[in-house]
């Protein structure tokens, strides 16, 4: 096995006795040179292109998410405000309606009261008038009855053959009517 390894090593010009290519110091300079080149290339690719781009995308996404959240919050706030305004308008309208109803009721009541008072006044005036008329009629009736009674009494006395003296007949009728 050792001889095999050595022969392959020799074939590749490595000339390494230990059998570990890792310990072949003649390749170290070459390895280190290319490693450093590789690392520098990767570093520049990362710092100049890849990392800033990914960082920008990530922060942009974060910004978009934040903005969207803020917008959503704002819209929600607006919705709440709109609802409040709606409720307020509704309450206002209801209060206004109640006020109008109360006013109308008060107006109607006032009109009603005025009309009733007027009617009462008219009725009492009419009643007084009627009473006066009735009193007048009654007075008129008493006079007529008195006159008729006198005439009737005179006639009755005349037909019975008595000469009726007007003065005494009137006095007698008046006394009777009073009694």
């Amino acid at each position: 096995m050792a001889s095999n390894t050595q022969s392959t090593e020799a074939a590749h010009g490595g000339a390494e006795a230990a059998g570990m290519p890792q310990l072949d110091f003649s390749t170290f300079g070459n390895q280190i040179f290319w490693l450093v080149v590789t690392l520098v290339v990767i570093y520049f690719v990362l710092t100049k292109i890849a990392l800033p781009r990914i960082e920008a995308v990530l922060s942009e996404r974060q910004g978009t998410i934040t903005n969207d959240l803020a917008a959503a919050e704002e819209l929600k706030q607006k919705a709440v405000e709109a609802e409040e305004a709606y409720n307020k308008a509704l309450a206002d309208a209801r209060a206004e309606a109640n006020k109008i109803v109360a006013e109308a009721r008060a107006d109607i009541q006032a009109d009603l009261d005025a009309a009733a008072a007027k009617a009462d006044a008219e009725i009492s005036a009419k009643a007084a008038e009627s009473e006066a008329a009735i009193a007048e009629i009654r007075a008129g009736a008493v006079d007529s009855v008195k006159a008729v009674s006198k005439d009737a009494a005179k006639e009755i006395l005349g037909s019975m053959g008595y000469k009726a003296d007007a003065k005494s007949v009137t006095a007698a009728v008046t006394a009777r009517m009073k009694g």
Binding site: T8, H12, T27, N30
Partner: peptide, 22 residues
Amino acid sequence: AIHPMDQFEIKPLFGDGKLGMF
């Protein structure tokens, strides 16, 4: 016939097999 370390050998890709710095 096991040569487990052969895979780690550093070989020039071009040229006559001499390994320089570059």
